[in-house]
Write a protein that binds this DNA or RNA. Structure first.
Length: 209
DNA sequence: GATCTCGTTCACGTTACCTCA
DNA sequence: GTTGAGGTAACGTGAACGAGA
């Protein structure tokens, strides 16, 4: 059974104003002073080289290394939002700017939510399918019941030439037609109970997937 | 205590770059 | 070599929230 829980933000991690502003105000376009990896160095050099005079440098696409992605994913599994200290530590560990870590988490949350939404969409489609099928079954039963109600004509007694009381009628187990003698218990009743149970059980909850 | 301003973070939508078929 | 689709890093914006005046 898929969960319909949507929320995944972690309350209480949103702001840490006690952090020094020197940590918070790191600019995404500034090189951290120490520990820059070779890839990132190359990237940032390229950024400088490709600066043009027409309103800022063109956007460069950073490709995270497998190790960086792995660590970020691992961190994301632990918590979906980062406080400034965690962000700073992770950025240091990954040799990225805090802003890059922040952006990665924002995008990761968005992807996670998208995936969740797609799963829920799929789930609802299947549920709709099963409800449609169930509806068809119930419609058929309604038709059968209607047919039974108007179908069997009043049975006349061969002796008195008068209509027999309903309590004397029963269902033939072979042809499922009304015959004279017994009570209302029979295959039809059993069948209807099963259908009613099905309907009730599915009404009470959502289908298992 | 109520209000305002400022700074920060977030979600959301979008853009731009990169890879691959 | 070209092209379109898909993935994703980065950006812009508005809302929410807390702190300080």
């Amino acid at each position: 059974m898929a969960s319909l829980e949507l929320t995944m933000s972690v309350p209480g991690f949103s702001s840490y104003p006690s952090l020094p502003s020197s940590v918070r105000d790191l600019d995404i376009n500034q090189v951290p002073s120490a520990g820059q990896g070779a890839d990132q160095e190359e990237l940032l050099e390229d950024e400088e080289d490709s600066s043009n005079g027409s309103g800022g440098p063109p956007r460069k696409k950073l490709r995270l290394t497998k190790e960086q992605s792995r660590l970020l994913e691992e961190s994301f599994r632990q918590h979906h939002t980062l406080n400034p200290r965690q962000k700073e530590a992770l950025a240091l560990q990954l040799k990225l700017r805090p802003r890059q870590v922040e952006v990665w988490f924002q995008n990761r949350r968005a992807r996670s939510k998208l995936k969740q939404t797609e799963m829920e969409c799929e789930y609802l489609k299947r549920w709709f399918g099963s409800l449609t099928e169930q509806n068809r079954r119930l419609q058929r039963e309604v038709e059968e019941l209607r047919a039974m109600k108007v179908g069997p004509p009043t049975v006349m007694s061969p002796h008195t030439c008068e209509p027999l009381p309903a309590s004397t009628l029963t269902m033939c187990p072979h042809c499922e037609r009304v015959t004279t003698t017994a009570t209302t218990t029979g295959p039809t009743k059993t069948k209807l109970s099963a259908a009613a149970n099905t309907a009730l059980s599915s009404k009470a909850g959502t289908p298992a997937l």
